[in-house]
Structures are given as structure tokens and as C-alpha cells.
Design a protein around this nucleic acid. Structure first.
Lengths: 205, 205
DNA sequence: ACGGCTCTCTACCAAGTGGTAGACACTCTA
DNA sequence: TAGAGTGTCTACCACTTGGTAGAGAGCCGT
């Protein structure tokens, strides 16, 4: 198999590094993850990794950007596949998020990990995520939800709080699994209901 | 000031090591925390630390045991200071937990961190926490809540799930702060209410 | 005064860390 | 076919890590 064909099949080296680093950072922690271990998982030498990302910090930034872009893409896609009514869109985004939490828990875990690390990683995360929040605020503002700047600021906080809730729920789910509790659909549904109710209340929808 | 007097004033070396390690493990992560950094915070050499805890793993175990004992003590104390009615006790424990989350967030953070580490730390945590759960189950069983072994097993799961919820809420709170959201009493109250409702429902109280 | 005990220290060590320097192979273009 | 990239490699380096060996200071009962 040629190099080009293999890359087509399993992704470019850079992407594979990002994927491996995402998983490692999410479940072992950034500082506890060595470049060697990430490289080994990719099947490459550490120096190859340092060719693509000149330092561990740059790799972390790459992971942050990639994760945020991935997350944003999935949510936008979810919104695109639904009607124009606010309530429908809200449900679509929340459901997409919950689905994400079960299929790609590392995406939420890495967000938590990075926020714990503090600057500069958390700053990078904030910067990368800002456009997403802006898009959401703008979309809601267009619906007539927010008119003044103060409204928009409040809206922004509502969205951030919802994000925090999702991270909290993801952590709870992880911890439940660690405790040996079986996956519980009723529990998930109640969390989803509560989040939707809270959003509806906050957005006056 | 004599050695003995200083120890009386600021705690024994061992206790100070445990406290410093608890904080460091909770907010930087275990693998990302070096023995040197813990020792430096205590104001002592690493080798002194290794005198008290012969390895990093033993130190971690010490922190786990200490944290669980502390947590258990606080909860028992909360229960002791209330009437015999089940509902009152439940409220007392939940409120004590929430108070703990604001005054000593590191206690909950370290639990999350340790569960993420997996064995052997998580095993140690489970072992250390088991008596607490048993005591709670026994107390509830005495109230006539649980009669059969299956009842007791279900009860155990309810308590574990409540613990997971608390850890999730603590994470949510931490993340809210990281996002720059102001502390929000209404939010906290709603989480408390939801937890109490869920417990009441599960315990048929 | 003394030997034992408790506690902290200095001095190391092997292994692993993030990162640098530079050689080697491959492909694509002139 | 020569040369410039591009991507991966081997070989190092300085530093930090968890851990060991053992000396020495203060205390205590004899």
C-alpha cells in the first residue's frame, strides 16, 4: 500500500496525532501525557510529532482548535437538519450534545481538562469557542430573543451556563460508570428534560 | 518556638503533607504533581516526605484515606445534629455536602481525580468509602426502607448515584467559575432541590 | 553520659521528560 | 537528472522525576 493510499485510509499523520493526543489528554490529563506515549500510539517517533507540532503546547493548542471545530461542526449540522422553530432547534442541539456525550465523551472530557489547566490552554479554548457562542447568540437574537446589548450579554451567560451543565452531566456519567452503576436511560432523560426546561425558561421560549 | 509548639500550632508534618498533597492532587492532578512540589509547599525536603510516605502511591493512599475519613466525619456530624426523621436527616446530609462543596471543593475534586486514575487508587477509594456507604444503608434499613438484600442493593445504588450527582454538580460549579460566570445561588438551590427530590422519590420518603 | 529512637537532612542515581541537530529517503518540478 | 521540499528517522542534551543510602541532630529513658 502506498503512503498516499494509507493516509487516505487512516488519515494524515497530523490528524492521527491530533486524535491520539485528544484521547490521551482527555483521559490521562495533559501534564501526565508524554509526547513519547502519544507518538507510540500513532506508530511514529516523538520527533515526527514535534515536526508537526513544534512543542507540546502547540500540540495542545492544535487539539483544542480541532476539538472545538469538531464540536461546533456537529452542533451546526444538528441545527441545520431541523425546522426553523426555536424550540425545535433547541431540542436538536441538546440532543446532539447528549449523543455526543455518549459517542465521543473525550470531546467533553478534554474541555474540562483544559479548563482545569488554566492559561494559556484555557485562553486558547475561550478564543476558539467564542465564534461558536457568537453565532448562537446572533441566531437567537435574530429570533427576537435579544434586542439590547445587555440582553445579548445575558444570553451569552445562559449559553455558557448550559455548557457548564453539559460538562457536569458528562462528569456525572463518567463517575457513575466508574462506580460500577449500569447506564441508566431514565437518568439521562431526566437530565435532558431538566436542561431543556432550564433553557426554555431562560430564553422565554 | 519549639518544634512541639510549632507542630501544635500548624499541625504535624504528616498532616501538613497530607493537606498539601490533597490540594495539589485535586487541582493539578496526581501524575502532574511532583513530590518535590508538595514538599516545597510544606517547607520540607522531598526525602522527609518519603520518610512519612515511602512512595508516591502510599502518599496517594494516605490522601484518599484522609479525605474519605474527613468527608465521612463531616457527614456523620451533620446527621448527628438533627432530629430522627428521615426527611430531616436527608436534608441535613445534602446541605452539609453542598456546604462542603463551597468550603472544601478540593475534597470532591480529589475524589473525581482519583476515580479517573483508575486502579489501584480508585480501588483504595472504594475500599475506604465502603464502610460509609454501609453505615448509611444500615441506617436507612433501620428506618424500614429496605428489608431484603435486593432492597439494600438498590439502596446502595441510589446512594452511589447521589454521590455521582454531587461530583457532577461540583464539576459544573468549578467549570462555571472557569467560564467567568458569577456564583449563582438560584442555580445552587435548584440543584439542591433536584437532588433532594430525586432522593425522596428513590427512597419513597 | 549514653545508646536508641525519631525526624530531617545532603548526596546520589536510573529512568523519563520536552526539545534540538542533523542525516536519510522520497516525491515533485525544472 | 539535479535540486528543493517534505516527512520521518537516529542520536543527543539538559532537566526533572520517583526513589535510595546514609549521615546527623534532637529527644528520651537508663
Amino acid at each position: 500500500m502506498s503512503e498516499a493510499a494509507r493516509e487516505q485510509a487512516i488519515g494524515s499523520t497530523r490528524d492521527r496525532i491530533l486524535a491520539a493526543a485528544l484521547h490521551a489528554f482527555a483521559d490521562r490529563g495533559v501534564e501526565a501525557t508524554s509526547l513519547d506515549s502519544v507518538a507510540a500510539e500513532v506508530g511514529v517517533r516523538k520527533q515526527t510529532l514535534l515536526y508537526w507540532f513544534p512543542s507540546k503546547e502547540q500540540l495542545l493548542f492544535g487539539v483544542v482548535d480541532h476539538a472545538v471545530a469538531d464540536l461546533g461542526g456537529r452542533l451546526l449540522e444538528a441545527v441545520a437538519g431541523t425546522g426553523p422553530a426555536l424550540a425545535d432547534r433547541m431540542v436538536a442541539v441538546v440532543d446532539a450534545t447528549f449523543r455526543l456525550g455518549t459517542t465521543h465523551p473525550e470531546l467533553l472530557a478534554v474541555v474540562r481538562e483544559i479548563s482545569r489547566l488554566g492559561p494559556p490552554a484555557s485562553t486558547r479554548l475561550a478564543t476558539a469557542a467564542e465564534p461558536l457562542v457568537d453565532v448562537a447568540v446572533a441566531a437567537l437574537a435574530r429570533e427576537g430573543i435579544a434586542a439590547t446589548d445587555a440582553d445579548r450579554a445575558r444570553l451569552r451567560n445562559v449559553l455558557l451556563a448550559a455548557g457548564a451543565t453539559v460538562v457536569g452531566i458528562a462528569t456525572e456519567a463518567e463517575f457513575r460508570a466508574d462506580l460500577g452503576l449500569a447506564p441508566d436511560l431514565a437518568w439521562l432523560r431526566s437530565r435532558r428534560r431538566a436542561l431543556l426546561d432550564s433553557l426554555t425558561r431562560s430564553l422565554g421560549g
